[in-house]
């Protein structure tokens, strides 16, 4: 099998009383075993919604997956019955969240939180059997003297330790895919680097694929193999991490790169920013989603939406006026 996860034409819309917001509006991507894919974009671009749609963690009262295929090892996850989906969550696909402090149930100990995910997929397992494995897991995620931490509650741990516990929960059943939704955003900068290193190590040890969601290009650059840049609910550029950083082609990607402040730059120079804000465009979309903020926008961009075209091996761009000089 080639791809462990294939997402095709995913559309997830939020419905409010007055309007429909296309949070994700036609996203395609694939994930190979052991690959780390980055989903990048600013707040509201739909990256988290993509991840949550994949595992069915969407609020069904106002959010709906309008269309799309989500194939995990060939099984369709979209519309799968909840019982089978539960069998995949935490075993086939795991997820870690942005803020570990609010992602761990406050009233259960570290031991029982990890034991819960083991028990969910192996009802026979006893606490005594799980203990050894849990200690090993905590060691693997870099928690010092794990035996002493088993009976701690989340609030007794630092943010970095909490995130390590979250990662231990996610890894407990050797998942095929780990989805990390902004896993370092809520952490101190020094701890961020440690956690990213840890994720890289664990990818090799557990041989799993990863989807890393981030708005932070530095984070993406440091660990991803391939990157999808999202804007307004669609992928605007997809390429290997080298291509994205060396030859960005979409004006939005270029803008993101230019927004990284340079450490050697002139201090009097004003920092670059992409003008304007993310704008909600209600479907059906008949223009490039980025055209109002784009310096290169032409009449064509305002009249029809550019398709995602392959411009090089594994490099796809959604722009009529992409860089052609290289």
């Amino acid at each position: 099998m080639d791809n462990i996860l294939e997402v095709r034409n995913l559309r997830t819309y939020y419905h409010t009383r007055t309007r429909t917001v296309p949070a994700v509006d036609g996203v395609d991507f694939t994930l190979k075993p052991k690959e780390i894919l980055g989903l990048v974009g600013e707040s509201g671009c739909g990256k988290t919604t993509v991840a949550r749609s994949v595992v069915g963690l969407i609020n069904r009262r106002n959010t709906k997956i309008e269309s799309g295929e989500i194939l995990f090892k060939g099984q369709e996850l979209n519309g799968m019955d909840s019982h089978r989906l539960c069998g995949i969550r935490g075993k086939g696909i795991s997820m870690i969240f942005q803020d570990p402090f609010v992602s761990l149930s406050p009233v259960y100990t570290v031991f029982s939180q990890i034991y819960e995910v083991m028990k969910a997929h192996d009802p026979e397992i006893t606490k005594a059997q799980a203990r050894g494995r849990i200690i090993e897991l905590l060691q693997n995620v870099g928690i010092p003297s794990p035996e002493l931490r088993l009976d701690d509650y989340p609030f007794q741990l630092s943010g970095g330790m909490q995130q390590r516990v979250m990662i231990a929960i996610a890894l407990a059943n050797n998942p095929d895919i780990l989805i990390a939704d902004e896993p370092t955003t809520a952490l101190d900068v020094t701890v961020q680097a440690q956690v990213l290193d840890l994720l890289l190590q664990l990818r090799d040890r557990y041989e799993m694929a990863m989807i890393l969601i981030s708005h932070n290009l530095a984070v993406v650059a440091s660990i991803c193999d391939r990157v999808c840049v999202m804007y307004g609910g669609v992928v605007v550029e997809e390429a290997s991490v080298y291509d994205i950083f060396d030859h960005p082609m979409h004006p939005y990607t270029k803008g993101l790169m230019a927004s990284i402040p340079s450490i050697s730059g002139d201090r009097k120079e004003e920092l670059f920013s992409i003008k304007g804000n993310v704008e909600v465009i209600e479907p059906p979309v008949t223009c490039c989603r980025f055209c109002k903020r784009c310096e290169r926008a032409t009449e064509e961009c305002r009249l029809s939406e550019p398709p995602l075209v392959e411009v090089g091996p594994g490099h796809k761009v959604r722009c009529f006026n992409r860089d052609r000089e290289d």
């Binding site: 969240f97 803020d99 819960e116």
Partner: peptide
């Protein structure tokens, strides 16, 4: 509405147990 509820769902715990236990 807490994130740990989604955290529990992501463990593969059935919805009824998510509601009761968490």
């Amino acid at each position: 509405t807490n994130e740990y509820i989604d955290g529990a769902r992501m463990k593969g715990v059935s919805e009824i147990n998510v509601i009761i236990r968490h």
